[in-house]
Design a protein around this nucleic acid. Structure first.
Lengths: 144, 144
DNA sequence: ATGCAACCTCAACCAATGTTGAGGTCAAGC
DNA sequence: GCTTGACCTCAACATTGGTTGAGGTTGCAT
């Protein structure tokens, strides 16, 4: 079975049919059509959906994913190397998110220790504090 | 200055006045009113807002924060011990989120190694895989 | 006592991420 | 060749987390 119908893609990926329609409208995935106008997906759609799911777990908006997908070929199924490149970039993004959360956790520990949570001296509470704000996560992705 | 107006609270916390109104409507913060019906916040509102901001960074919905706040006294400003208890629970939540992301990152590394991202054998792509799904984040919070 | 910034409420709107339903078509097995 | 489940489009609705604006009031400084 070389091509997938929406229902098959939905079952295999774990997302709903309506979500697949939605992703297509948003330009995240692409389908060929049968003579009768039914969607047929190339196998790479499952990889794309997997990436979308990872993205959502780490809080990256779909629009940023769409842009990331922009680096992949449009008409051709991406090569393993092209996917590996994308995956490496995701790995870096996860590294940043993890570092951010660790930082946050450690600051929170400090705050418990000092009893200061949210007072003016506390980095967590003070949005002007560059150390607390470094990163800001998804924004890095949207404007790299 | 014992009590804060909305404008002051907004400036000190870094969130907008309209967001404060919104949090109040949602039951996350509480205000006293002057004779002329203007809001006056007790100092602990800044801690609450700080917690809200941390929550949003790690993807916890406001409703879950509201429930967490339910453990704090309603009429009285919480004691340091009560805040410390909440902070400790946040610390645990951050630990879980961090563990989850580390897990995800390492699985992604495997996928780069094997070139499998999103194929049926891949844990990231297979939602039925309990190892990949463990945690699921905020849900733990909503129904603890 | 007056002016003006800051405040009030309420309703409408926004964007992201989908879901639901109506009304109609396709395709595969009996 | 007919039935039945899967599919199509399009529009409306849902939820979260707010913002914006209209129309009116308060309170601090002069």
């Amino acid at each position: 079975m070389r091509e997938l119908s929406v229902g098959e893609a939905a079952r295999r990926s774990g997302v709903s049919v309506s979500a697949l329609h939605f992703y297509e409208r948003k330009g995240l995935i692409r389908s060929l059509r049968t003579a009768g106008n039914q969607r047929r997906y190339a196998a790479d759609v499952l990889r794309r959906i997997a990436v979308i799911r990872v993205a959502q777990r780490v809080g990256v908006p779909l629009e940023a994913v769409r842009q990331a997908f922009g680096t992949l070929p449009d008409e051709r199924t991406p090569t393993r190397e092209e996917w590996a490149g994308m995956s490496a970039r995701w790995h870096d993004e996860l590294d940043r998110r993890i570092a951010q959360l660790v930082n946050l956790r450690d600051r929170l520990t400090d705050c418990i220790g000092c009893g200061c949570l949210s007072l003016t001296a506390c980095a967590l509470a003070n949005p002007g504090d560059r150390l607390a704000e470094e990163g800001e996560g998804p924004r890095r992705w949207e404007t790299p």
